[in-house]
Write a protein that binds this DNA or RNA. Structure first.
Lengths: 233, 233
DNA sequence: CGTCTAATTGATGGTTGTCAAGACGAGTGG
DNA sequence: CCACTCGTCTTGACAACCATCAATTAGACG
């Protein structure tokens, strides 16, 4: 997918209709596309925040807590928008889990206070608010839930967000992230994640095949697993 | 403090100079002040998100995870702005820790796409981005740090943010929140928080007097405590 | 000064992290 | 097509950390 197609897809998906052509052209001028191979890291100007539109593939946004230790803050799939903050207390990096096409836009491009780009600003606010909600939910999960509940939550979330990938008769999805990456996003170790996978399988709530094929057999049961707060946690 | 003074303080603190009088008046028209007693809860229209300016006092923003179990998402003090999301997966409530004067503004008030209020939109985006960064840092702390590190982090944060309250020769601050509330924000139990307080005191890093008076004796040492990621956690 | 709630401290157990070994899967070369 | 190899995943044993339960102490307020 080339830049024009990628930008058009982005515009279709998030830009409102009432935007002037001038504003769109200005944004288009400052955006650029990038192809990332699996495992490839997006290099950005650390001093500015960016919005990244994921055209295809899957990505992770991770914070470097210490050397060789990172905390994954968000997973994003095709059609999602990621807010990448500037360098602060932690450094953040967007990494592709699978080959991915992304559209990079400095946040400044949305923040002009010219009358024409007001609608753009609104988009930026809404996307940031959405990211804030997701982050707060994540914080709640990390603070108050057991390992079992965290994984159940995670699987339900991914299962729902990748729904379009199983529309063609397929009942399974391909998890683009490794067990280690799941662990890093849930604040657990890889061993604990693996054990929870096994137990959910034994409970008959999910089925797995190979490393990455997942099928949620009993969404309601999984939801029950995820729902209740840890009695002991 | 009455509404006009509260609004003026808010305007001085966050509104940019290039805002038209019309935009300010419009915002002022939709804002209202509220006095909260200690422990008082702010009741909002759940279907809209709001920005709350804390004029005086201290507040907590909490999510209700289940009955009688809440996760505190943010503490905010005089001069801070809080983003309260609409009802979603979790319900959120802003509660006063001490008597507080707050200015309530529906987020919609900032989101008008009239040319005059463009600068307002920018303010909203920036405040939301700030909240997002804070929330992500919080998530990292909850996911990757031990009890000791969480409390050290927390105390350093509060110590820095309440710096203005100890400018008058005082070297101590009054913690407006209880141990239980600290526990709820750090994803720990009240007993663990209390034990960590005791240990930090024995290490000579902090001093406490009564329930809420705190003095950080050795900020660097505390920072060292907070800095390293949990070896075992 | 008395009462009540919050905070502290101790003892114990459960959940999860750590260390270690083995199994599985993917990719490569014969 | 099969064997080999390497990295990821799984499973087990053990230990550490934190939650739970319980009892005592300290503070706040009337």
């Amino acid at each position: 997918m080339n830049f024009p197609d990628l930008f058009d897809r982005f515009a279709d998906r998030v830009l409102p209709a009432n935007l002037t052509d001038a504003a769109i052209l200005q944004l288009r001028h400052e955006a650029y596309a990038e192809d990332l191979p699996a495992g490839g890291r997006l290099h950005l100007d650390d001093d500015r925040s960016h919005f990244i539109f994921v055209g295809s593939g899957a990505t992770k946004l991770a914070a470097f807590v210490s050397t060789e230790r990172e905390q994954i803050v968000a997973f994003d799939f095709a059609g999602d928008i990621v807010h990448v903050p500037p360098r602060g207390r932690y450094n953040f990096a967007l990494t592709a889990l699978t080959p991915a096409e992304v559209l990079v836009m400095p946040a400044d491009s949305f923040l002009r206070t010219t009358p024409e780009s007001c609608a753009l600003l609104k988009v930026a606010t809404e996307e940031t608010a959405r990211a804030l909600s997701a982050s707060r939910e994540n914080a709640i999960t990390l603070g108050r839930r057991s390992a079992r509940e965290r994984l159940a939550c995670f699987l339900l979330d991914v299962w729902a967000r990748m729904a379009d990938q199983r529309k063609t008769g397929e009942e399974a999805i391909v998890l683009p992230m490794s067990r280690g990456e799941i662990a890093e996003s849930l604040g657990l170790t890889i061993e604990t994640v693996s054990r929870q996978f096994s137990e959910l399988r034994e409970l008959g709530l999910i089925e797995t095949c190979g490393r990455s094929l997942l099928r949620v057999v009993d969404p309601e049961g999984l939801s029950r697993c995820a729902g209740q707060v840890a009695a002991a946690a």
